[in-house]
């Protein structure tokens, strides 16, 4: 599976580097930047160029903000069958989950798997501590 990462400014490249720090090399991750001087059309072209047309059905796009320009550009491409799907909400846990599963699933399977676990991606200490105190003590 090919993963195209698109985020505001240079976040996509940074996410790829972060994934490699935790997971290891991800040759199938293709990060794209989005700068203030670019518009929807330009970004759409940039994303389209990064997709291997032979692998459209096996290409997932990750963007940062739902209904931001990267998402809107990606959504347009998916509607035109230039990529399989797009997920907004790019974060390190999301990217890692995708890196872990990309080799073993189709895009629809991976999307289903990721979307079922989104509650694992944001955590707060005070809530987690409350939860873990309900559990048993050491042996």
């Amino acid at each position: 599976m090919d993963i195209i990462l698109v985020g505001h400014a240079n976040t996509a490249q940074a996410f790829k580097e972060a994934v490699e720090m935790v997971f290891g090399k991800v040759e199938n991750f293709h990060p794209l930047s989005f700068s203030p001087s670019e518009g929807l059309e330009e970004l759409t072209k940039k994303i389209e160029t990064a997709i291997n047309p032979q692998k459209a059905e096996d290409t997932l796009i990750l963007t940062d903000l739902f209904s931001g320009t990267p998402y809107n550009a990606a959504a347009g491409l998916v509607m035109h069958h230039k990529a399989a799907d797009v997920i907004a909400g790019m974060s390190l846990p999301l990217c890692l989950e995708v890196a872990l599963s990309a080799g073993q699933m189709t895009v629809p399977e991976l999307v289903k798997h990721v979307m079922a676990n989104t509650n694992e991606y944001v955590k707060c200490l005070s809530e987690v501590v409350q939860e873990s105190q309900k559990e048993e003590d050491d042996f």
Partner: peptide, 10 residues
């Protein structure tokens, strides 16, 4: 930490 919770735990 990150490497352990994501990759090695799985």
């Amino acid at each position: 930490h990150g490497q352990v919770t994501t990759v090695w735990s799985k």
